[in-house]
Design a protein around this nucleic acid. Structure first.
Lengths: 146, 146
DNA sequence: CGCGGATTTGCAAATGAGTTGAAGATGCAA
DNA sequence: TTGCATCTTCAACTCATTTGCAAATCCGCG
């Protein structure tokens, strides 16, 4: 997966402050992990990864939610009843309504080209359905997991 | 959504026995409710509905899972961290099931006609995407919440 | 019909993800 | 450096779901 180059500690701090969040040590650790991850990460995974560094589960949790509330990350459920978090990247900014493909198996989320899914209006389709949809999600098994 | 006509108690019993499940009273009640529902139902909704009839939450829960294991129903998470169950119907077995529309605001889930969403294959589309998708979810604001 | 063993139920207690309260620690603007 | 709002920590809590188990119920067989 394409990743921006390694970010310095200062880059991370700036990212947090721009989002009106204090740059605390555990917060930076959480943000760093999200940057390093190439698939959405669950709280448990992150907590396990950060426990050795001495951070509390609740702290990791609150930070994950803080980042989400601040608009830096997104929280989603891939169908397995586990919240997973991923950084919101420039390409994810709303407006362009490209659909997402979610792999049930590995949780990988990939972006599909805009227009690759078409909502058709039929006699039975609820009125103005198309205008009301702001996210399209396809679920299945990705090529790798197939 | 098109519903089969009202099913008799015997019809329900037959359905259960064909799936190798005993036709017990709570099981029949659960099955009946699923037949009556026109959207996927959560355990809590069903338990609340059946509590007055005297059925235990755990029993409702187990039955929901039994029906799912037996292939009569399907358990899914529409992205709001709530398991919802719906009967598997004949029309669902033809590869592409009907898409679901999930309201972000009220959580209401509605079923769209099969075929109302089309996956188009373009030059940029990952190979054989269509065959790998087994669920289509549209998210937005429903008419009521709009 | 009526038996008997396997399946189910009901209750209560366990589990586990996720959240919250409170007190002390820390970041940061001035 | 200081003041204080924001954070962290720990433990205790909530709430959905699961489990153990004794008692109740199904249903094939006689």
């Amino acid at each position: 997966m394409v990743r921006a180059g390694k970010l310095s500690l200062d880059d991370l701090k700036t990212q947090l402050r721009d989002a009106d969040l204090r740059a605390t040590a555990p917060r930076l650790a959480v943000l760093r992990c999200l940057h390093e991850a190439d698939t959405p990460v669950s709280h448990a995974e992150l907590a396990d990864k950060l426990a050795p560094e001495g951070w509390d589960r609740a702290t990791v949790y609150r930070n994950l939610n803080d980042l989400t509330d601040a608009g830096l990350a997104r929280k989603r459920d891939l169908g397995d009843h586990v919240w997973r978090f991923e950084l919101l990247r420039a390409s994810d900014t709303h407006g362009d309504a490209h659909p997402h493909f979610v792999c049930d198996e590995c949780g990988e989320v990939s972006c599909l080209p805009e227009g690759s899914v078409e909502i058709k209006t039929t006699r039975n389709t609820p009125v103005r359905l198309k205008e009301r949809v702001h996210e399209i999600q396809l679920k299945g098994r990705c090529e790798r997991c197939n």
